[in-house]
Amino acid sequence: MKWCLDDVREMHAAAPYTFYIPSEEVFRQLKVGDLVKLIFMNEHPSSDGYGGERMWVKITDVQGNQFEGVLDNEPYYLPIEVGTELSFGIEHICQTEYEEPDGEKWDYYANTFVIVSADVLEREEFHFMLRDNPNGEEDSGWSFLSGYEDDAYLSDTENFLIVSIGVVLNMDDSILSIVQQPPLCAYERDEEGTFQEIEDYDWDGYLNG
């Protein structure tokens, strides 16, 4: 079984609100003796779906954005031993032991939850968003629809899921300012692709229907 190190910057670029990587401020603090986490990938995924694992590496040398280190924990599957010497770059580091200055922001992306229709996740797009009063500390009150759902689809609770708000922001982060608006509010995307508030939304019908 062969392995390689994954480029976490590519993974972050594909999902910037759900795949965390350390900030430049954190990277600048790294020094010999620090532990960093890398993603070791199986070059050929096994039949059971195993793709790789995240493991801690202790830094032994720093040269700009390039590092030397030794594996600091025991792998579950990969044929590599604790103490193995490694060369890696800043693009391979997905976690450090340092506190992230933007930690509250990342907590918000991961721990704030919204309701989406399954159609939103399938299409990876949404055209309607509504904020009800939150039900609990981590509930944002936001719901998202693709705009293609019919009445039968909307009446079936099995068609709805709870996901982190980061999942929705990965699709369209133009709503970052909108999601801070207080309940009760509703928005729909216009022909130019911009969300506009629905001033005459039927809240009585929604809340009492």
Rank of each mutant, 00 (worst) to 15 (best):
Phe19Asp: 06
Arg189Cys: 02
Cys4Trp: 00
Leu184Val: 13
Val116Met: 04
Lys105His: 02
Leu169Met: 11
Thr84Leu: 08
Val114Thr: 06
Met55Arg: 15
Glu74Arg: 15
Val8Asn: 13
Leu145Ala: 08
Leu207Arg: 06
Ser155Glu: 04
Tyr206His: 14
Ala110Thr: 15
Gly209Trp: 05
Lys58Phe: 02
Ser46Gly: 04
Ser155Asp: 06
Val70Ile: 15
Asp48Lys: 13
Lys58Leu: 07
Gln29Ile: 03
Ser177Glu: 06
Arg123Ser: 06
Glu158Pro: 10
Glu24Asn: 04
Glu158Trp: 04
Tyr50Ala: 06
Asn111Glu: 09
Ile162Asn: 10
Val70His: 10
Lys2Trp: 00
Leu130Asp: 03
Tyr153Glu: 14
Ile198Cys: 00
Leu5Asn: 12
Met129Asn: 08
Leu38Phe: 02
Val32Lys: 10
Ser46Asn: 06
Trp203Tyr: 13
Leu78Met: 13
Val120Cys: 03
Pro79Ala: 08
Asn159Ser: 13
Glu104Tyr: 03
Glu68Asn: 15
Tyr50Glu: 03
Lys37Asn: 09
Ile80Asn: 07
Gly33Asn: 11
Val114Arg: 05
Glu125Arg: 11
Glu104Met: 09
Asp72Asn: 11
Met171Asp: 12
Val70Ala: 14
Thr157Cys: 09
Leu78Tyr: 09
Lys2Glu: 01
Tyr76Ile: 15
Thr194Leu: 07
Glu91Asn: 15
Thr194Glu: 00
Glu97Lys: 10
Ile165Cys: 08
Asp204Gly: 13
Gly33Tyr: 09
Trp142Pro: 08
Asp34Val: 06
Thr60Trp: 07
Gln95Trp: 06
Asp151Tyr: 08
Cys185Tyr: 00
Val82Phe: 01
Gln29Tyr: 00
Phe40Pro: 14
Gly141Ala: 06
Gly205Phe: 07
Glu122Arg: 05
Asp202Ala: 00
Ser47Met: 08
Tyr77Asp: 12
Asp156Tyr: 04
Ser146Thr: 15
Pro22Arg: 03
Arg28Lys: 06
Glu91Ala: 14
Arg28Phe: 00
Gln95Glu: 13
Leu154Trp: 02
Leu130Ala: 00
His12Pro: 05
Gln63His: 13
Glu85Phe: 12
Gly51Met: 04
Tyr153Trp: 10
Trp142Arg: 07
Glu43Gly: 11
Glu24Val: 08
Glu85His: 12
Ala110Gly: 03
Pro134Val: 07
Phe27Gly: 01
Leu169Arg: 15
Pro75Ile: 10
Glu191Ala: 07
Met55Trp: 09
Gln196Met: 02
Pro16Ile: 11
Ile175Ser: 03
Glu74Gln: 15
Tyr201Glu: 13
